[in-house]
């Protein structure tokens, strides 16, 4: 576990030194939000629309920001250093925690941008929204981390990640959108506990499978 935290620390340190992900993210979030504001007038923003847009922006920011975790190690050929000094499972967990941290930052940034600029983004159930952000950050990271490891060996990485992750992330996105609608006060008979349970069990399954299979991905 200490090794995992040290890998996480190393990743965060590298990120703070370059600020590559943070800057590209800020630019991405701000441009998308401004484009949305230009193209959609205030009274057209329904609760459903802003909840969906939130996760659309989140999905694409994740694709630009998070894909770096394994891909960067492979591109800079530093993965060998990690493999010599840690087991595949430890490397995976380090990257998973890193993804969760980055994804939380992504979602919190988008939340603030939406609160500032989008008129219908007003919470009627703030606790549920915080819970949604937390749980879906963990689920999205658990899916993206293993997929990032999968594409790191492939050739056209930039194209491949959205393609591979969309079907795997779709269940998470659908549930997150529904939960966000609920927390924004959309009238509904839906049961939020079911959705949260669904996401939690989905990420538990994905993380377990990733831990079992990560060693095959490094094999040559």
């Amino acid at each position: 576990m200490k090794i995992v935290l040290n890998i996480l620390y190393k990743d965060l340190l590298c990120e703070i030194r370059t600020r590559h992900v943070i800057y590209s993210l800020l630019v991405f979030v701000l441009t998308t939000v401004f484009v949305l504001l230009f193209s959609i007038s205030d009274n057209e923003f329904t609760v459903d629309l802003s909840a969906s847009l939130f996760w659309v922006v989140s999905f694409f920011s994740t694709m630009t920001g998070l894909s770096r975790s394994f891909v960067l190690e492979e591109e800079k050929q530093t993965i060998l250093f990690l493999r010599l000094n840690a087991t595949p499972e430890q490397i995976y967990l380090g990257k998973l925690f890193y993804s969760i941290v980055v994804n939380l930052i992504i979602n919190i940034t988008i939340t603030f941008a939406f609160i500032l600029f989008i008129p219908t983004f007003v919470f009627s159930n703030l606790n549920l929204f915080i819970l949604t952000i937390l749980v879906s950050s963990i689920s999205i990271s658990s899916a993206v981390t293993i997929l990032s490891a999968i594409i790191s060996k492939a050739e056209n990485k930039g194209l491949l990640l959205p393609f591979l992750s969309f079907p795997i992330l779709l269940p998470i996105l659908i549930t997150s959108i529904n939960l966000t609608k609920l927390s924004l006060g959309a009238f509904s008979f839906e049961n939020e506990a079911n959705y949260l349970q669904f996401m939690i069990s989905y990420s538990v399954v994905l993380i377990t499978a990733s831990l079992l299979f990560i060693k095959y991905i490094f094999e040559e």
Binding site: K2, I3, N6, I7, K10, L13, C14, R17, T18, K76, Q77, T78, L80, F81, L84, N85, A86
Partner: peptide, 20 residues
């Protein structure tokens, strides 16, 4: 073909390896 992290210093590498 063993590459190191460009953003980290020499001493940070040595600390990292000791921890790992």
């Amino acid at each position: 073909y063993l590459f190191l992290y460009e953003e980290l210093t020499a001493i940070e590498h040595l600390t990292l390896i000791q921890k790992l």
